[in-house]
């Protein structure tokens, strides 16, 4: 699971230090270094790690600590706060409202898991009493509409799409208009994968967005992504101004540090994580409990 190994290593580094006999500056530096290596191995953005290193050192300021102070507590808290900062942008995630249409548009890199997650999310809201549906605005990828159709059928969710159209903005607008008229409450719009290096693809995203005026845009990020996460998510943020992130494939072995760096880069909250290929494999995400659990520090949240 995402960041589990990282949590274990960071924990070990902190408790090694706090347990050691002579808690001196050299040992402290060693701990900070070990934490940074663990973060780098988890694909956390290189620049972010170096900021975090400075930040922990500055907060703890080991040299000037009076001998009496509880160093263990202080160090633990500094590390915890920095990690929370990584995953918690202090922004309220979107909450759909009953009785009105909530249009949710998915964006993201190729193969990140958008289409799969679209159905998961529509189904999630459906079981919570929202009248939900799906629109396929991916007119590019071979078999994209069939994929969405088969998933939607399995989940018993109404869907809309076109096998022949080549204009995703048009299909999206048509689908959204149709479902609005039918008083659907959650309208999830799937789009093609794209990347920042190709301007036409980003323009297309803007066109779709303009055509359907979504209440919420969600960026889907693969937990295995490496150092490109920051640049790509920043570019998506600038162009599509997404309001939430969903991290997929957290059932894999990857640490997810790349995807999590995207949170820090875009100040956008993670709302859900995908935990498998099946329809029910979707979990809510909350930053603080997540970090507490990851570091095995159940009590830290109260201490803030």
């Amino acid at each position: 699971m995402v960041l589990q190994d990282l949590g274990r290593r960071i924990n070990a580094a902190v408790s090694d230090l706090t347990r050691s006999q002579n808690l001196d500056e050299k040992a402290f530096d060693g701990m900070v270094k070990e934490i940074c290596n663990a973060l780098l191995e988890a694909d956390v953005n290189v620049k972010l790690v170096s900021t975090l290193r400075k930040s922990i050192k500055a907060t703890v300021n080991f040299k000037d600590l009076p001998p009496a102070v509880n160093k263990k507590r202080l160090i633990q808290k500094a590390v915890f706060d920095e990690l929370v900062k990584l995953v918690d942008p202090h922004a309220e995630p979107f909450k759909p409202k009953k009785g009105k249409p909530n249009v949710i548009m998915f964006v993201g890199l190729q193969g990140s898991g958008k289409t799969t997650t679209c159905t998961k999310l529509a189904r999630h809201y459906q079981t919570r009493g929202f009248k939900s549906c799906l629109v396929c605005a991916d007119t590019f990828r071979a078999g994209a509409f069939d994929q969405l159709k088969q998933n939607a059928t399995k989940a018993k969710i109404p869907y809309f799409g076109s096998l022949t159209s080549t204009d995703p903005a048009l299909v999206a607008a048509e689908g959204v208009a149709k479902f609005k008229k039918e008083h659907f409450e959650i309208i999830v719009v799937d789009t093609s994968g794209r990347h920042r290096q190709e301007k036409d693809l980003f323009d297309e995203m803007t066109q779709i967005q303009r055509a359907i005026a979504p209440d919420q845009t969600i960026m889907v990020l693969d937990a295995t992504i490496g150092q490109q996460a920051e640049a790509q998510s920043k570019a998506f943020k600038e162009t599509a101004d997404f309001g939430s992130i969903i991290i997929t494939k957290t059932d894999g072995h990857a640490s997810g540090g790349g995807a999590i760096s995207a949170v820090a880069a875009t100040h956008t909250p993670i709302v859900f994580v995908g935990t498998g290929e099946h329809m029910l494999d979707l979990e809510r995400f909350q930053p603080q409990p997540f970090v507490s659990k990851m570091l095995g520090m159940g009590d830290m949240q109260g201490a803030r």
Binding site: A142, Q147, L148, N151
Partner: peptide, 16 residues
Amino acid sequence: TFRSGAVEQLRVHTRN
């Protein structure tokens, strides 16, 4: 034979 649309995806590619 697992992922939705996987067969149709290849059918489209083969046709193209």
